[in-house]
Design a protein around this nucleic acid. Structure first.
Length: 577
DNA sequence: GCCGTTTTCGGCCCGACTGTTTTCAGTCG
C-alpha cells in the first residue's frame, strides 16, 4: 500500500468522522496526515520498517498504529466500524458545491437520505425544504449543484486551464478602473490539476468590475456575487472566482488567494506567534492597528520571511526554509537551452528533422535531440536499426546546413518491452548519441515485475535517460506501481538521468519523486517530448514541476551547454561501459 | 488526533457570501 492509497483512506476517515459530528480538530488531524502522506518523499512502508512513521508531520501514535495495521493486514478495523455507523455512500454528497458535512448529516439523520439519488429525488419532490434551515432556494441550489457535478469532469489539467486563465486575466486588465490583476490560487502555484480558477484585482470601483465579471458573455451561471468576491461558471464546468480589493491591499489579497490553504494556515500561526492576526486584508496588531500591503513581498518581509515563490507554498517546509534563509534558487524556463526528447515524421511526429530543428532554433535552443520511437511500438511507426542508420545521414545533412548554432543529437526513445528487454540491440544503441528508455506497454504489471523491467533498463550501459518514468496520464491513469526507492537508488548508482516530461497530461516524474531524486543527487532532464513545434512551448510546464520539487538549474541536464551535455553523455557511457 | 522558543495539557486561522435564523450557521477558500 503506497502513500497515495494511505492518504485516501485517512481522507475518507476524516470525511466520515466529520459527517458523524466528531470534534473538528480530530478530523483536521486526519486530513493533515493525509495531505502530509501525499507530499512525503519516502514511502510509509519503508519508514514503518525503520520504526520511523511518526517522523511524517501530522502522524502521531494513533495514526501510526493505523498505518501499521493497514500495511500489515491491508485492512483497518477502525474504518470498518466507522463505515458500519456512517453509510459511506454519504461521501458522494460532499462533492456537491455548497453541501458540507453539517448538511449531509441533516439529510441523513432527519430525512433518511443516504445517496445522491435519494437527495436528488427529495429535492425534486420539494421535501428538502421541510428540513430546518433549508428553503426553496437551497433546494434549487442543490439540484443545480448536482447538475454541475455531473457536467464537470473533476479537476482539469493545468495545461487546459492556464490558457483560459491568461485570456480572462487579459480581459480583466483591460477593464476601466482595474489597476492591477493577477492569476492566483492553484493556477499561480502551477498545480498539475486545477479545481477552480482564481483571479485577483485591485480596482477603484469594485462594484462596476464585479458587474462586468458576472455579465461576461461566457458566464452560464453566477454562483456568488458580492462586492469583494464573486464566482461564476463557464459552459465547460470550470468555475472562476474573482477577488477585488483596493490597490493598497492588493499584496495581502494576492497572497491570501494564492494559498495554498495549508500554507496560509502556517503563515497565520507564525503571525500569531509574532502577536499579529493575518487575513486577506493584512496584519492586525494587538492594539487593533491594521497594516496593509500593496506588494506581496512586503507582507512576507513583515513576518521576517523571504518572499516565497508560489510553487513552494504547499506547507512542505517552505516557511521554515524562508525563516532560515535557505530557500532554493529555483530553476526558471529561461535556464533550459536543450531539448533532449523530440519526435519527427520518422516516427509519429508532425514535422521533418529540418523543420523541428528550425523551430528549436527559433526558440533559442542550443541542443535538440531527435529521439524517435523504436520499432516494437508499431503504432508510432517506430524505427529499426536500418532506418536509424538512414536517419543519421539526414541528421548529419541538416546539421551541416544549420551550422554551429544548434547542435543536433541522434537518439531514440527506445521501448522497454514487456519482458524487460530493450527494443534495440546494444551495438545499435552504442551508435546513438543519446538514448532515452521508456515504458509504454504493460504498465499494469505487478510491482516486482514492472520495477525489475525498469531496473534492467537503468542498468543497461547505453541508457542515458528514463523517459516519463511512471507512465501516468493525468487526470485519470495512475502511474505504474513502482518500487521508487529501488528505482532511485539504481538511477543514482548508474548515473542515469530521470525525465520530467513536460507534457501537461504527463508531468512525470511528479513533484514528490522529483524532489526525492534531487535530494539523492540524481540528475533530472526536463523535456517536452515534442511531436510538433507548438509542443516545444510546453517546457514551462516541466519547469513548474521542477520548481514545485525545489529544483535548481544545476540539477537539470538541459541547462548545460552543448559541450557539457556531450561530455556528460560520454562520461556516463564510459563509466558504465 | 497532533504538538510544544508561551505549553506534555490546552490549545489548534480568518473573513466573505448565502440563505434563512430575526442575529447566525454553514460552506468555501
Amino acid at each position: 500500500m503506497n502513500n497515495q492509497q494511505l492518504a485516501e483512506i485517512f481522507e475518507r476517515i476524516a470525511n466520515l468522522l466529520e459527517i458523524n459530528g466528531e470534534v473538528v480538530y480530530k478530523t483536521l488531524a486526519y486530513r493533515r496526515a493525509a495531505e502530509s502522506l501525499r507530499a512525503y518523499p519516502r514511502e510509509a512502508e519503508e519508514l514503518y520498517r525503520e520504526g520511523k512513521l511518526t517522523e511524517i508531520p501530522g502522524v502521531g501514535k494513533a495514526i501510526a498504529e493505523k498505518i501499521e495495521e493497514l500495511l500489515t493486514t491491508g485492512k483497518l478495523g477502525f474504518l470498518e466500524r466507522l463505515e458500519q455507523e456512517v453509510p459511506p455512500t454519504l461521501l458522494e454528497l460532499l462533492e456537491i458545491p455548497d453541501v458540507g458535512p453539517k448538511k449531509v448529516a441533516l439529510f441523513w439523520k432527519q430525512a433518511g437520505i443516504t445517496s445522491l439519488m435519494d437527495l436528488e429525488s427529495a429535492a425534486r419532490d420539494g421535501h428538502l425544504r421541510r428540513l430546518p434551515g433549508i428553503g426553496e432556494k437551497s433546494e434549487q441550489r442543490i439540484l443545480a449543484g448536482i447538475e454541475a457535478l455531473r457536467r464537470r469532469s473533476k479537476r482539469m489539467l493545468l495545461g487546459t486551464v492556464r490558457p483560459i486563465g491568461l485570456r480572462w486575466l487579459n480581459w480583466l486588465r483591460g477593464l476601466p478602473g482595474v489597476r492591477e490583476a493577477e492569476l492566483a490560487g492553484s493556477l499561480r502555484r502551477w498545480k498539475p490539476t486545477i479545481g477552480d480558477l482564481d483571479l485577483v484585482a485591485a480596482a477603484d470601483d469594485p462594484v462596476a468590475v464585479m458587474e462586468a465579471f458576472v455579465h461576461h458573455d461566457e458566464v452560464v451561471r453566477v454562483l456568488a456575487h458580492g462586492e469583494n468576491k464573486s464566482s461564476i461558471e463557464l459552459s465547460n464546468g470550470l468555475n472562476i472566482q474573482l477577488w477585488i480589493q483596493p490597490q493598497a491591499k492588493f499584496g495581502s489579497l494576492l497572497q491570501f488567494v494564492t494559498g495554498s490553504k495549508d500554507h496560509n494556515v502556517r503563515l497565520r500561526e507564525l503571525a500569531q506567534r509574532k502577536g499579529f492576526s493575518l487575513s486577506e486584508h493584512g496584519l492586525t496588531t494587538p492594539d487593533g492597528k491594521e497594516l496593509f500591503f500593496a506588494n506581496e513581498s512586503d507582507l512576507y518581509q513583515a513576518l521576517d520571511l523571504e518572499w516565497i515563490p508560489p510553487e513552494l507554498r504547499e506547507d512542505r517546509g517552505e516557511i521554515q526554509a524562508a525563516l532560515e534563509h535557505r530557500l532554493p534558487d529555483l530553476i526558471s524556463p529561461a535556464d533550459l537551452i536543450a531539448e533532449l526528447h523530440s519526435h519527427t515524421t520518422w516516427s509519429d511526429g508532425a514535422l521533418s528533422i529540418h523543420e523541428m530543428a528550425r523551430a528549436a532554433k527559433a526558440r533559442g535552443l542550443k541542443v535538440l535531440a531527435i529521439t524517435d520511437h523504436t520499432h516494437s511500438l508499431g503504432i508510432a511507426n517506430g524505427l529499426d536499426a536500418d532506418r536509424l542508420r538512414q536517419q543519421r545521414k539526414e541528421i548529419d545533412a541538416v546539421q551541416a546546413m544549420l551550422g554551429e548554432e544548434l547542435t543536433l543529437l541522434q537518439g531514440a526513445e527506445v521501448e522497454i518491452k514487456a519482458d524487460g528487454s530493450l527494443d534495440l540491440a546494444d551495438d545499435v544503441l552504442a551508435e546513438l548519441d543519446i538514448v532515452i528508455a521508456s515504458l509504454h506497454v504493460s504498465l499494469r504489471q505487478p510491482r516486482e515485475e514492472i520495477t525489475a523491467r525498469l531496473l534492467r533498463a537503468i542498468r543497461n550501459p547505453h541508457v542515458d535517460i528514463i523517459g516519463h518514468p511512471s507512465g501516468r496520464l493525468l487526470p485519470n491513469r495512475e502511474g505504474a506501481d513502482l518500487d521508487w526507492e529501488a528505482i532511485l537508488t539504481a538511477a543514482r548508482e548508474e548515473n542515469v538521468a530521470l525525465e520530467i516530461n513536460a507534457n501537461p497530461s504527463r508531468l512525470d516524474l511528479d513533484e514528490v519523486h522529483a524532489r526525492r531524486a534531487v535530494e539523492l543527487g540524481i540528475l533530472l532532464s526536463i523535456n517536452t517530448d515534442a511531436h510538433s513545434p507548438a509542443d516545444l512551448e510546453l517546457a514551462e510546464y516541466g519547469v513548474s514541476v521542477a520548481r514545485r520539487a525545489w529544483v535548481s538549474a544545476a540539477q537539470v541536464l538541459n541547462t548545460r551547454s552543448p559541450a557539457e551535455i556531450r561530455r556528460w553523455l560520454a562520461e556516463h557511457r564510459h563509466k558504465s561501459g
